[in-house]
Amino acid sequence: MEWKDVIPVVAGAAVILVVALVVKPALLGEPIGFGSRGTVPVGDPPVYVPSSPVPTPTPIPDDGEVYTRNFRWTAIDGGVQTTEVTVPKALFGEHRKTPRFSDYASWGRYALASSDRPFLEDLARRIAPPAANPDAEYFRLMNLVFFVQQIPYDNDENATSYIEGALPRYAMYKGGGVEYPKYPVETLVDGRGDCEDAAILMAGLLDALGYDTVLLRYSDHMALGIRMGEFNPYYARYTPRYFTYGGQHYYYVEGTDFEWWNVSTNSTAIWGKPRAIGDAAGTGLPSVQSETPQIVPLRYVPEPKEYRISPARLPGNGV
């Protein structure tokens, strides 16, 4: 055989290979060359992009101007207590300029607002100073509850509920009424509020002391739930009401419904009886008696129940 005889064979083979490896894949959209038919051009594999870290909170400008409020309340031992609260006007003004969340489920954020936290920690320490005796813990807790219960009640639609004497810009019109959930320091500066304001303030104060609380939302009311093991004191003339959330018991705590009377007919002085933990029967609200409230945790983060990857066997008898 001579070279001139081999050349056509080689040329034929070359044509076949070109058709097989270039022309046909190009026509069918397959990868050119010896690559797998399964490999498609999909770019680089994705990479994980970490999230941004916790930002440093923007400090509230402190121009020295403050609101000063004096509170007077009856403590659990029957003694009258007083305390003074000062809040920077800049912080209060900042809250008033902040839009409100329309979803009730996010109202726990108000109680945990980082800007309010130092004021709540300071106030909580003054109302309920740390006690060496563990038995005194209940009295600390109740003093905080009683303090909040004795802040005068005022509806959101009343201009008297706000120091400006007018509804704030971000008051929300919902269900034929007005809703304006206040940040804790707003309630303190206004010196009054409605049920959700009291529940939010109480939740903020108790959280500052390390208690686990939730908001209990009814169709026309909001109260607080506090996590306790078993609470059934011998002196209670009621069955303490609690709700189960995340496997824990949260006992009902009323924030506003302070029972009071005038000391005498001609006196503006009042005396009264705060509501105890678990006492839901005395509020007189039908919704509290009949409804199961929506439980609003202060700290909400999305927590999926299902998230496990199931290992798949590999083809070719692999594992």
């Binding site: 994980y48 970490p50 945990l112 980082s114 686990d212 999305p302």
Partner: peptide, 19 residues
């Protein structure tokens, strides 16, 4: 998430979104 501040909760959810 028991004792997270609001800012820490937000950062936690940003991590969730990144995942």
């Amino acid at each position: 998430t028991t004792d997270l501040s609001v800012a820490e909760c937000d950062a936690h959810v940003r991590e969730f979104a990144a995942i």
